[in-house]
Simulated scan of single mutants.
Amino acid sequence: MPTDVDRELNRIGGTLDRVRARTDLAVSGRNRQHRETEVVRRIGRIAAADGLILAGAIIFGLAVAPLGMMGAMLVALLLVAATLLFALMPASAPVNVEKLAEIPLKALPRSTERWLETQRPALPSPVRGLVDSIGVKLETLTPQLAALDEHSPAAVEVRKLVGEQLPELVKGYQRVPEPLRRVERNGLTPDQQLAQGLQLIDDEIAEMTSQLAQGDLDALATRGRYLQIKYQGDEG
């Protein structure tokens, strides 16, 4: 016969399963949206390049001389080359993590999310779900920063967490030689420290988002704890 403890554990397990399902759904939608946006950008670049080539060919044929067979073949080759070039070229320039401090606040979460996504394959598989969860929360945070003063204490705390401490946590882990990442030190392996740090950041971003939604900027401005003591102190 199930005890109260068993029922409580089952309830907690069900709650966790629902949270994971919502996160998986949000991640799936986010990835699909990113793919669609990238396809639209590529198609737009191809259309613009091909349009310029055709317009140039028409202007040359009318103002200078008829293109002829060789000219038509050259235009066709240019169209193929431009299509392949822009189809294979990345739709967005890679994010330089060292430049995050210079990015406008409202664009910071999206830029950090893009950088974090490029780091995902090099991170241990158990934390990739956290990376996805952080990405979803960064997208939610983005529109809330549009009206936030760049120089306010609240903005400073957001920039510190999203633009400094999150990248530094990931880079600090990557500086650890691969054979040592599963070696315990002070009770935790680097893999475990990374997981704990990402979980803390995930929770902090969620709390920041909630405070911004409530307009509680004073509380947000005083959230000066984060990772320096607990994780950055163990980085060596």
Score class of each variant (00 low, 15 high):
Pro2Tyr: 08
Leu9Thr: 00
Leu9Pro: 01
Arg11Asn: 12
Ile12Arg: 03
Arg18Glu: 12
Arg18Ala: 14
Asp24Pro: 00
Val27Gly: 06
Ser28Glu: 14
Arg32Phe: 03
Arg35Lys: 12
Thr37Lys: 04
Thr37Gln: 04
Arg41Asp: 06
Arg41Glu: 08
Arg41Pro: 04
Arg41Lys: 07
Ile43Phe: 00
Arg45Leu: 02
Ile46His: 09
Ala48Lys: 02
Ala49Pro: 07
Gly56Lys: 07
Ala57His: 04
Ala57Glu: 11
Ile59Thr: 06
Phe60Trp: 09
Gly61Ala: 13
Leu62Arg: 13
Val64Glu: 03
Leu67Ile: 00
Met69Cys: 05
Met69Gln: 12
Ala72Met: 14
Leu74Gly: 01
Val75Asn: 10
Ala76His: 08
Val80His: 02
Thr83Phe: 02
Leu85Glu: 02
Ala87Met: 11
Met89Leu: 15
Met89Pro: 04
Ala91Val: 02
Ser92Thr: 14
Leu100Gly: 15
Ile103Ala: 09
Ile103Asn: 12
Pro104Ser: 10
Pro109Asp: 09
Pro109Phe: 03
Thr112Cys: 13
Arg114Leu: 06
Leu116Gly: 01
Leu116Asn: 13
Thr118Ser: 07
Gln119His: 03
Arg120Phe: 05
Leu123Trp: 14
Ser125Ala: 15
Val127Tyr: 04
Gly129Leu: 05
Gly129Cys: 07
Gly135Arg: 00
Gly135Phe: 08
Gly135Lys: 06
Leu138Pro: 02
Leu138Thr: 04
Thr140Lys: 04
Pro143Gly: 09
Pro143Asn: 14
Ala147Cys: 11
Pro153Gln: 07
Arg159Tyr: 01
Arg159Glu: 04
Lys160Tyr: 14
Leu166Ala: 11
Val170Ala: 05
Val176Gly: 05
Pro177Lys: 10
Pro179Lys: 00
Arg182Val: 10
Arg182Phe: 09
Arg185Cys: 10
Thr189Ala: 09
Pro190Asp: 13
Asp191Val: 11
Gln192Val: 13
Gln196Phe: 06
Gln196Arg: 14
Leu198Glu: 12
Gln199Ile: 10
Ile201Gln: 13
Glu207Leu: 15
Met208Ile: 15
Leu212Gln: 00
Asp218Asn: 02
Leu220Met: 14
Thr222Tyr: 06
Leu227Asp: 00
Gln228Asn: 08
Gln228Arg: 07
Ile229Trp: 13
Lys230Leu: 14
Asp234Ser: 03
